[in-house]
C-alpha cells in the first residue's frame, strides 16, 4: 500500500506575521519557513504506519514555488521514501491544490492520503475534504487516532463536543490533528540520506490542471490592536474593577 502525504511550506509557526505597509501582502522577506506543523504530524503517522508493516511506500507531495523542495527534503529526512514537487509560481488556493493532488492520486493510486487538518498560513481547513470529494472517497478530518486493518480504516476524530469514531473502506483521505502523534526529530544521518532520495518535479500543465485562483485578495490588513489594560494590586481591586468599571460581574 502506498500513502501520499501532502506537505505545505509555510511561515514558521513561531513567527509573528506582519502586513506590508501598502497592504499588498504579508512580509515574507528574511522570515523563517518551515513545514506546516500539521503536515509534520501527517508525515510521522505515515512513516509509523510503514514501520508497522502496513504500508510499502510513503510519497510526499508539495505544490508551490521551487523552494518547497527544502520542505520535501525535511519530510524525506523524517522517513518518507520519495517526493514530488508540483512546481508553480502561481498563488495556489485549496481547490487548485486539491485538483493537483487528485491528479497525483490518479497517477500514483495510493490507498491512503494523510494531510494536515489546516495550513497555519491560510487557516483554510479545506484541501483534504476537497481532495476526498474530487476522488469520490470517504474522509476523516481532525484525526487523533488511526487504526488500519486490511482495507478498512478506523479513525477517531476531534469534534466540537468531544470525539467520534468512524470506520470506512480505503482509499480515503484522513487529516491529522495535533494529538495524533508527536513527530520525531530528523537525525543527521537521516538528513544526509534524504539528500539522495528521489525527488520528481512536475508542472501543473503536465497534470492538466488549471490552477488559476478563484478568489482575489483585495486587501491585507492588521486587525484592530487590543491595548494592554492595567495591572491590579490584588483580588479585591480586581473584583472592584470588574463590578464597577467593566460591569461584567
Amino acid at each position: 500500500m502506498k500513502i501520499v502525504v501532502p506537505v505545505k511550506r509555510v511561515i514558521d509557526y513561531n513567527v509573528k506575521v506582519r502586513v506590508k505597509a501598502d497592504h499588498s501582502g504579508v512580509d515574507v522577506s528574511n522570515v523563517k519557513m518551515s513545514m506546516n506543523p500539521f503536515d509534520e504530524i501527517a508525515v510521522e503517522e505515515a512513516v509509523r504506519i510503514k514501520e508497522a508493516g502496513n504500508a510499502d511506500e510513503v510519497i510526499v507531495v508539495s505544490c508551490g514555488v521551487a523552494s518547497c523542495q527544502e520542505t520535501l527534503r525535511s519530510a524525506l529526512a523524517l522517513g518518507a521514501d520519495r517526493a514530488i514537487i508540483v512546481e508553480t509560481d502561481v498563488e495556489l488556493q485549496p481547490l487548485a491544490v486539491a485538483k493537483l493532488l487528485a491528479a497525483i492520486c490518479h497517477k500514483e493510486k495510493p490507498q491512503l492520503v494523510i494531510c494536515g487538518k489546516q495550513a497555519i498560513d491560510d487557516d483554510a481547513n479545506q484541501t483534504g475534504q476537497m481532495l476526498a470529494a474530487l476522488m469520490g472517497w470517504g474522509q476523516a478530518t481532525c484525526a487523533s487516532k488511526i487504526t488500519l486493518n486490511e482495507n478498512v480504516a478506523t479513525v477517531t476524530r476531534e469534534i466540537d463536543g468531544g470525539l467520534e469514531t468512524l470506520e470506512f473502506p480505503l482509499p480515503a483521505v484522513i487529516s491529522a490533528d495535533l494529538r495524533l502523534n508527536a513527530p520525531r526529530y530528523a537525525t543527521l544521518p537521516n538528513i544526509m540520506k534524504a539528500k539522495k532520495k528521489p525527488l520528481e518535479t512536475i508542472n501543473p500543465g503536465a497534470l492538466g490542471v488549471d490552477v488559476a485562483p478563484r478568489l482575489r485578495t483585495l486587501k491585507f490588513s492588521e486587525p484592530p490592536k487590543r491595548g494592554a489594560g492595567i495591572k491590579v494590586a490584588d483580588v479585591a481591586q480586581l473584583i472592584d474593577k470588574l463590578k464597577h468599571e467593566a460591569k461584567v460581574l
Binding site: Q126, R216, E222, P223
Partner: peptide, 30 residues
Amino acid sequence: VAQISEIIAVEDVDTFVRPFYAGNVLVTVK
C-alpha cells in the same frame, strides 16, 4: 467553486473578510 473559510464580515455580495495567520492578518477576498 472555491470555499471561503470563517468569514467575519460581509463587504459586498461577493466580497468577504476573513482571518489569516491565526488572526494576525485580515484579508478581504472577492
